[in-house]
Design a protein around this nucleic acid. Structure first.
Lengths: 69, 69
DNA sequence: AATATATGTCAAGTATATTTGACATATATT
DNA sequence: AATATATGTCAAATATACTTGACATATATT
């Protein structure tokens, strides 16, 4: 899994820390950290919660248009 | 989790059985069955694989616009 | 110097997604 | 009647998402 910079950016736009976002979506702070870092694969349910907290959609935060690497 | 009828429809449009789709995305047939049935929560990675196999995006297959229930 | 916030990371435990194998039903085909 | 495909479901095992607690660093504040 690749690093998810889009979450970090969207979070910055909402002025939320990883801890803030984690609490908003109901997971541990380490879980948000690992997701942004790309350590593992969140469930769709969690992705949807993150999207709603950040006012984005799944495609905007989690769709991969470029895996040309 | 609610029943995901959109996957079933998209699958029908591609003329694929649950088994066909499961093989295309690399999971067991029971896993696809459970996802369509809404029994549990797939990982984003799996969702993305399903989307690509069905020529759809995450928003089209997994975004929930209506949870007014 | 001390305190607080934000982030990164590790290790051990728990919850749950996913697998495998099996059995069941319905429909279509031979 | 027999065979094949598509789907639904169950139970036990395995992989991994996620939690909890802890420690570390960097930056800003008092």
């Amino acid at each position: 899994m690749a690093k998810n910079l889009r979450i970090k950016v969207a979070r910055a736009a909402m002025d939320m820390s990883q801890k803030d976002l984690a609490e908003a979506v109901g997971v541990a702070r380490q879980t948000m950290n690992a997701i942004e870092k790309g350590d593992y694969n969140p469930s769709v349910k969690l992705c949807i919660a993150i999207c709603k907290a950040l006012n984005k959609t799944l495609d905007q935060l989690f769709w991969e248009e470029n895996e040309n690497e």
